[in-house]
Each structure stands twice: as C-alpha cells, then as structure tokens.
C-alpha cells in the first residue's frame, strides 16, 4: 500500500482545527445539559442555559464558540505500522501550516505571542508553538491527530504533596484550586477537571492536562478504585456551593478525570487542570489507505498508554490482575 500522503495529513489537521473551534463535543454538551437540569439556583441555571444557546449558535453560524480561541495544541498517536510521506518533521510542518491557515480562515484569535517581546505573527505559530505531544500504538496502521484549543489563564495549579498527606491532601488541594479560580468564574466553570497524580513535576502537569482534555465526559479510569475516587471528587467539587461565574450553585465539574504515573517513593505530586466551558477538541484518524474519519473522542488513554510493566503483554496481565 502507498504511504499516507502529506496532503491527507495536512487536510486532517486543518479540518480538526475548524471543528474544534466551532463545534462543542457531544459528550460535553450532554454533560452540561445535565448540569443545567440539576442546577437549582436561578442565576447559575441561567448562565448554563445561555452557554447551551451559545454552542448552538456557534454550530449554526460556523462561528468560534468563544472569541478567546485558546491555545491550539496537538496530540499525535502513530500506529507501529503506519507509513506516511514526509517523515515526522513533515508531519510537524503540516501541523504548523494547518494552524496558520485555520487561524486566518475560522477566524481564530492570534493568541500566540513571544513571552518576552510579545511578537505576534498572527498565525498562532511560534517557538515551541503549537505544542505537539507524541505517543505510539502497537498493532495499528493509522495515525490519530487530536487538536485541543485549551483556554484559560486560570484554573491550573501544581503542588508537591507527600504520601502522608493521603487522599485528604488531594481533596484539600482540589478545593483550594477550584475556589481560588472559581471565584467570579475565572476558570469558566463548569469544567472538565483533570487531576494528575505522580510522575515528576512535568509529567504530573502533563497527565493532569491530558486527563482534562483527552478523556470524554462519562469516561472512567480502568482502575476501579481510581474510578470511585473520580466520582467522589466530582461530587465534592459540585458540593462547594459554587457554580458558574462563582455564583451560588452546584455546578463546578461536568466530569472529573484522574491519571496517574509512577513517582518518587517519597512524594505524591498533584496537579489540577480545568478544561473550560469551551472544551474544544477534535480528532482525525487517518487510516492506512488514506481515508480520514473525524470524531470528538481522542481515545488517547489506550491500555498500551497506561501500561505498567516492561513488556506490553506482561503489562496487560498486570492490569488484568489489578482491575479484577
């Protein structure tokens, strides 16, 4: 079979940019409608219902759902058997060029600037931008490309906790973060909350971000105990007494996802991320024969991605043992 063409890759990147900016993912819409039903406070309820109207207008008029079109970034999963033109740097070039084109065509806000000189090329491209994270998948010939347009200067925090702080330490830090950024609604809640636990500081941040942005509403961690914790912490987030815009209410979390990474024996680093009211993500799968399928579930956290042992097969057994 011919390798996947660079044209197909560039087309996929461009399409997901447009879809992400305009169309709210179905799972999040369903979740936010549920929040609207459950919210008893009139003001908070009004805010959530207005958001639902906003998503509908965005899709009907092909407008970005939020003028802060966030920071576009990419997550690429390449199957072991995928063959494609241009190599990995070619794919990175496609990603950058699709970002620039979509910025002009949607239009999206050229949010990306040099951190010190504030240089703006008006195309959301620059040094280390957009970010591209890579992962791989055994037994697959496709390439999955996901874009996330992550909004928000507010709503993310990191803290080094210790094993002795226990789950209560995580609870407390989650409350701190939600309340700090929830006041006046700076985090644009209700949000999908992602919690990263473990790893080193950078992986901890990365896991939390991916947990918020790359898992859909309703998805549970395969580790049963972690899944229970997700539900508990979501319940507690919604019991603070706060809702959208920091008004009295019971809607902070549309869902809450936890991802873990093995960490230093002495520590328990934790990060909290909120994926705001504009939870923008879109995924394209480019099959080996070049045809492209679009969806909103990134399917990033595969069993392989969460593997625990040295060998993939061995890790599979290990998981089966733990989740039984």
């Amino acid at each position: 079979m011919k390798p996947i063409s660079q044209r197909a890759i560039e087309e996929a990147c461009y399409e997901i940019m447009k879809k992400a900016a305009v169309d709210i993912p179905e799972d999040y819409l369903t979740g936010i409608k549920r929040s609207a039903e459950q919210e008893k406070e009139a003001l908070s309820g009004f805010v959530i219902r207005t958001m639902v109207r906003n998503y509908e207008t965005a899709t009907a008029e092909r407008r970005p759902m939020c003028a802060d079109t966030g920071l576009p970034r990419y997550f690429v999963k390449v199957g072991d058997h995928a063959r494609f033109e241009g190599g990995f740097t070619g794919m990175e070039r496609s990603i950058r060029s699709a970002t620039a084109r979509a910025t002009q065509d949607v239009p999206m806000r050229p949010n990306r600037v040099h951190p010190l000189w504030r240089t703006d090329y008006n195309n959301n491209v620059g040094i280390n931008a957009p970010e591209v994270e890579w992962s791989f998948e055994p037994d697959a010939g496709w390439i999955d490309i996901t874009t996330v347009h992550k909004g928000g200067l507010f709503g993310t925090d990191y803290r080094m906790l210790f094993p002795g702080d226990g789950i209560d330490g995580i609870r407390r830090f989650l409350l701190d973060t939600l309340i700090a950024f929830g006041k006046r609604g700076l985090a644009c809640q209700p949000a999908i909350i992602g919690i990263g636990i473990g790893g080193s500081k950078d992986t901890c941040m990365q896991l939390g971000k991916q947990a918020a942005c790359l898992r859909i509403v309703g998805d549970r961690n395969p580790d049963r105990k972690i899944a229970e914790l997700e539900l508990e912490l979501m319940e507690e987030s919604n019991s603070i007494g706060m809702g959208p815009m920091g008004f009295v209410g019971s809607s902070m979390a549309v869902d809450l996802h936890i991802e873990v990474g093995y960490t230093h024996t002495g520590g328990m680093p934790v990060s909290v991320h909120t994926f705001c009211l504009s939870s923008r993500r879109a995924t394209a799968r480019i099959h080996a024969d070049g045809h492209i399928e679009y969806r909103t579930d990134p399917k990033w956290f595969t069993p392989y991605y969460r593997r625990e042992g040295v060998d993939w097969e061995g890790a599979g057994l290990g998981q089966a043992r733990r989740y039984a």
Binding site: R159, M160, F162, D165, D168, L175, R184, I240, G241, V248
Partner: peptide, 23 residues
C-alpha cells in the same frame, strides 16, 4: 454572591488536615 458562597466554604474543608509542607 461571593459572600453567600463563602458561607458554605468552611464546610467543604471540614476534617481535612493541612498538608505536611506548606507554601
């Protein structure tokens, strides 16, 4: 609204110890 929310915040923290290392 912030004042109303503040009245319920303490309850959310009930029984949670401070972490070992402060900031």
């Amino acid at each position: 609204q912030g004042e109303l929310v503040n009245q319920s915040i303490e309850k959310a923290y009930e029984g949670l110890r401070k972490p070992a290392l402060l900031r």
